[in-house]
Design a protein around this nucleic acid. Structure first.
Length: 411
DNA sequence: AATCCACAGGAAGCCCGGGAAC
DNA sequence: GTTCCCGGGCTTCCTGTGGATT
């Protein structure tokens, strides 16, 4: 009976306890606030460059640089929205398209995705790329209009050697009779133009805008602005926002990180049933975010990468010398044999280690040991105990937790 | 100064699954 | 069905290299 009554009101109880947040969505990165603090100059510059679109002229292509969490995406999206709005008011058809090149990461997909915005369905794969291009061209050019294409994380395309799509896109106006296309490229990498074709470089980089990282004070302003909408009055402790700002500023002024910190701190406080967010919550949130991202990354790793990571953790536990590629490969091969899984070549494993590095799970550094060759020195950046348990669970059909490291060879 | 280790990491090409077109 | 494309994972083969040792 007692149990019944307490369960009956379970959601009421939870809702009653929600004394921290008013609107949590405000703290997510996808949320666009009405005002973007400390980005006035950039907004004006962008607007100035894009304004010709409203006078039936083609705006210059633009390149936007800046590290992650400096507001590049949000500012560009904001401006595009405004541009469309004004275009509608003035009866000038302007369409803006947002594409993230980390997801849409090949020329085929970029073109297919663009074509989709003009009601042209193109299969995931199958067509020759030039056919997709032609089909996109036809769909766009069926009436007079201005189009602004926002290519986020454009450096990913170049990295994957798909940069020639940029050449096509920057020259597309030559093939168009009615429509006009401008491109805004957004890049995290300041030096990515170095890898571009000189012709693309000149036409894409007509205008450059650099977003510098926020400093701690600016981050504080951003957090203050959002926290006023996000939280109940008086729940945010005095030093909470400065601490979030300081922690994020240390991480190259990443506003996303600052917002995450604040949100997770709030969630932790809420879960504890506390009615105030304290600095302690922020510290806990900082740890939680770090371990969550790493664990999540490890969980979604393909089997072979899991095996490689497991090998490295085992070697690291044994301690002693620094870990090198050759050592990892030897042990990995034994582990594979033990688990009855086909092993990959050293070349491939070397790439897998690099991938783990890029995920922030480990850091590897190429060092030369003189007579004893050149190799990568590998250092783990994660909570090994948790990750090891997670990995052996994920691979439990192979029973790898019983795997014993072979005796260390004497050098 | 020459040698040589133990790899790094580029290039090319294979194989496979997914899909379209004929 | 066959034949064509695309992309991703992988192998094979390869050339390159920093610096301790000879």
């Amino acid at each position: 009976m007692d149990l019944q009554t307490s369960i009956n009101g379970i959601f009421d109880n939870i809702l009653e306890r929600e004394q921290i947040f008013v609107n949590k969505e405000v703290l997510r990165h996808s949320y666009t606030p009405l005002e973007l603090p400390h980005r006035k100059i950039e907004i004006h510059k962008l607007a100035f460059i894009l304004a010709p679109a409203l006078k039936n002229e083609t705006p210059s292509n633009i390149l936007i640089y800046g590290k992650s969490g400096t507001g590049k995406t949000i500012v560009s999206k904001f401006i595009c929205k405004e541009l469309e709005k004004t275009g509608k008011k003035k009866k000038k058809p302007i369409q803006t398209i947002y594409l993230n090149c980390e997801i849409t990461d090949t020329k085929y997909r970029v073109l297919a995705n663009l074509a989709k915005h003009f009601k042209k369905e193109i299969p995931f794969t199958g067509w020759p790329t030039d056919k997709v291009y032609a089909s996109f061209l036809k769909a766009v050019d069926n009436k007079k209009r201005s189009i602004v294409i926002l290519l986020d994380e454009i450096d990913k395309l170049v990295q994957k050697d798909e940069g020639d799509i940029l050449y096509n896109l920057t020259r597309i106006n030559d093939d168009l009779k009615k429509a006009r296309i401008s491109i805004i490229g957004i890049s995290n990498n300041l030096k990515f133009t170095d890898y571009l074709d000189a012709r693309v470089q000149s036409s894409l980089g007509g205008e450059d805008i650099v977003f510098s990282p926020y400093n701690a004070q600016q981050l504080e302003d951003i957090l203050k602005q959002r926290s006023e909408i996000a939280f109940q009055q008086g729940v945010v402790g005095e030093f909470v926002i400065p601490l979030c700002a300081a922690l994020a500023a240390r991480d190259h002024g990443d506003a996303r990180k600052a917002l995450d910190l604040l949100r997770v701190s709030g969630e932790l406080a809420e879960r504890e049933g506390s009615d105030k967010i304290t600095e302690e919550h922020v510290r806990k949130a900082n740890d939680k975010i770090e371990s969550d991202t790493v664990l999540e990354a490890s969980r979604t790793l393909p089997t072979q990468s899991k095996l490689v990571l497991y090998t490295i953790i085992c070697l690291d536990e044994r301690g002693g010398r620094t870990i090198t590629t050759g050592e990892v490969y030897d042990t990995y091969k034994k582990l594979c044999k033990y688990a009855r899984i086909d092993s990959l070549t050293q070349r491939r494993v070397s790439d897998l280690i690099l991938e783990l590095d890029m995920l922030g799970i480990l850091s590897s550094k190429v060092v030369s040991k003189g007579r004893y060759g050149r190799t990568k020195e590998i250092k783990l950046d994660i909570n090994q105990v948790q990750t090891k348990i997670l990995l052996s669970n994920a691979l439990k059909t192979r029973n790898i937790s019983n795997f014993k490291l072979p005796q260390r060879k004497l050098h």
